[in-house]
């Protein structure tokens, strides 16, 4: 085991015929980290991830994924794929096979597969083990995708919008699964549209817009969130009151004295990740 970063990207550029999709990205994802990539559609998120996964080649840039250039062709590239797992955005394949047939077939591809029943159990499909894939619900289908992504015991797992279409409960149990994988040492690169998901799971978040990474930070400090003015709200004589302040502690102390104790319905609100994010990508000024 080396201690090099799981993903190391310098100056990644990808141009298509009429536009530049990725305009010079630098990115380091440490081993064992969950890194969330956020960005609006068309920002270059998918292109970046697909280059890291080896699906596309970059025009320029120095790219190392588990110390390996993903664009390498031939058997070296195949060998490298033993160490990664990919959960794609949408797939509707293998519809006529059962869950167990699909997972055990994919296990054959890898040098070091996990236990098949264990993986099916981990993604919560034990009850559906003999169901045909076309009989699964959208959420179950997605969990099968995850099972196929992790069956090869990957060191690095790519998750592309993994919980789209999940109900809240399924999403919670999916998050648990991801945390378990992390605790086993798996590095995870996640793209998502759900800010709460990034907040829940990610050690760090990168925001990508117009082909550039505009910020990388832990969810709690992204966009200066931790130092942004806080909103203090309370209720006085049945009327909601609020004040925007850079020093919420002082305001709360003042209110505490004002009420001589308990402040009715007190809340101190930092801008949430979603507000910060929308501001960053220019959706909200």
């Amino acid at each position: 085991m080396n201690t090099a970063a799981a993903i190391e990207v310098r100056g990644l550029v990808k141009k298509y015929a009429n536009k530049t999709a990725v305009a010079g990205i630098d990115l380091t994802v440490e081993q064992g980290e969950i890194f969330a990539l956020l960005g609006p559609n068309g920002a270059g998120k998918t292109t970046t991830v697909e280059i890291l996964e080896g699906y596309r080649s970059a025009n320029s840039g120095d790219i190392k994924v588990l110390g390996f250039n993903p664009a390498t062709k031939g058997s070296a590239g195949q060998k490298w794929r033993n160490r990664i797992g990919i959960v794609l955005q949408s797939a509707s394949d293998a519809a006529d096979l059962s869950v167990i047939e699909t997972v055990s077939h994919f296990a054959n591809y890898y040098e070091n597969p996990k236990d098949i029943d264990q993986v099916i159990n981990d993604v919560g499909l034990t009850e559906k083990i003999d169901s045909k894939v076309h009989q699964l619900s959208g959420g179950q289908r997605r969990r099968l995708d995850v099972a196929l992504g992790i069956i090869g015991s990957p060191e690095l797992l790519f998750l592309d919008e993994p919980t789209t279409g999940f109900d809240p409960e399924a999403r919670r149990s999916f998050w648990e699964l991801i945390r378990t994988l992390k605790s086993e040492g798996t590095t995870i690169l996640l793209t998502t549209h759900y800010l709460d998901e990034a907040q829940e799971l990610a050690d760090r978040v990168g925001v990508i817009n117009n082909g550039k990474l505009i910020e990388i930070a832990p969810p709690s400090t992204l966009g200066g969130r931790n130092t942004a003015p806080a909103k203090v709200t309370w209720v006085e004589n049945g009327i909601s009151k609020e004040i925007l302040t850079n020093n919420p502690t002082e305001e709360v102390l003042k209110l505490n004295q004002h009420f001589n104790g308990q402040i009715p319905e007190l809340q101190v609100l930092r801008p949430n990740l979603e507000e910060i994010y929308l501001r960053m990508i220019g959706e909200v000024k």
Binding site: E53, Y55, Q78, N82, S90, S92, D93, A95, Y110, L148
Partner: peptide
């Protein structure tokens, strides 16, 4: 059809040659 359904893309992402 396999190309559209993502079958081929998924296979491409595995060590299968």
């Amino acid at each position: 059809m396999e190309r559209d359904s993502g079958t081929l893309k998924r296979l491409r992402g595995t060590p299968m040659s």
